[in-house]
């Protein structure tokens, strides 16, 4: 049993078995890939009287595309997601920049404080906003008390504005952390060099800082946009009831046992998501929250 040093090295390297992957792959195939495949199959089946009729048909897709009703919900969801993504990035970038200028010790504390805020239930944070924005909410009562307004502000709830506000609030921490990671890796000496050479802050930002962090910004944009397409309870709680988003609509179809149509619409959303992910694949970096 006197193995040589080289042998030990080889031994240690080889002992990481690929079998470790086995349970993870089995679980993810069985409960992620296969269900999505079955969902795809169901999108070609229809339901009648709470029974699934297993005959292949394009009827569900025809229902989706035959009128403007369903596509308009999808486009509204895409449009709102885009607006919220842009709002999030515009806010997250200076916020992350501010954190990045601190010493490492302070960065850790500030990032910890950012992360802490999204360790609270999302539903309850949406509720917190309801209590702030409502007709008799804290903002309206407060402003009326100090005499700024006489009537409660009505634009604060049940229209697109609070949806954008609250979803930006939800997306900010993750986007800020992703952008922060790219700012941290950036070469700050170049920023100082640009300033030394006489570039003003705006030029420095535009030609030196931003180009170096573009991959981080794109990554943050994707990681913000994709989950937003599934926004569910925020539009239901603070949005306009008549301008539905795609996820609540599909949930209603599923509850009405319209499994085929629900599956078809889910599949259309999944295709949109996949296109975005494939196009942006090389930029996607998940930073540990």
């Amino acid at each position: 049993m006197t193995a040589g040093r080289a042998d030990i090295g080889v031994h240690a390297r080889e002992q990481t078995s690929l079998w470790g992957l086995f349970p993870m792959v089995v679980v993810q195939l069985a409960l992620f890939v296969v269900p999505i495949a079955i969902m795809f199959v169901y999108s070609f089946w229809t339901t009648q009287n709470y029974q699934v009729i297993r005959e292949w048909t394009l009827a569900n897709y025809l229902v989706f595309f035959e009128s403007w009703t369903y596509p308009s919900v999808l486009f509204r969801t895409l449009w709102m997601s885009a607006v919220i993504t842009i709002a999030t990035l515009c806010f997250a970038y200076p916020f992350a920049y501010w954190i990045a200028r601190y010493t490492q010790r302070w960065q850790k504390i500030l990032l910890g404080a950012v992360v802490l805020s999204f360790w609270t239930s999302g539903l309850l944070r949406a509720y917190a906003w309801m209590a702030l924005l409502g007709h008799g909410g804290i903002i309206n009562k407060g402003l009326m008390q100090i005499g700024v307004i006489d009537e409660p502000l009505t634009f604060l709830l049940y229209n697109p504005f609070p949806v954008i506000l609250v979803m930006t609030y939800f997306s900010l921490p993750f986007a800020a952390i992703t952008i922060f990671a790219s700012l941290e890796k950036m070469d700050w000496a170049l920023v100082d060099a640009a300033a030394d050479l006489g570039a003003n802050p705006v030029r420095t930002f535009w030609f030196v800082t931003l180009p170096q962090t573009i991959p981080g910004v794109i990554s943050a944009a994707i990681l913000t946009f994709v989950p937003l397409m599934g926004m569910f309870f925020v539009p239901l709680l603070v949005g306009n009831p008549s301008s539905a988003m795609i996820a609540p609509l599909i949930a209603n179809l599923m509850q009405a046992f319209q499994l085929g149509l629900g599956a078809a619409m889910s599949f259309i959303v999944a295709v949109v998501v996949m296109i975005i992910i494939v196009v942006a694949w090389r930029y996607i970096r998940l930073e540990r929250p």
């Binding site: 296969v34 969902m39 994709v226 599923m254 599956a263 959303v269 996607i284």
Partner: peptide, 22 residues
Amino acid sequence: LVLLPMIIPHFLMGVALLIFFS
């Protein structure tokens, strides 16, 4: 296989699992 379930909207997974179980 690791990344996708992290970023895909949850309702897609919910719908797929509901159909799968049914």
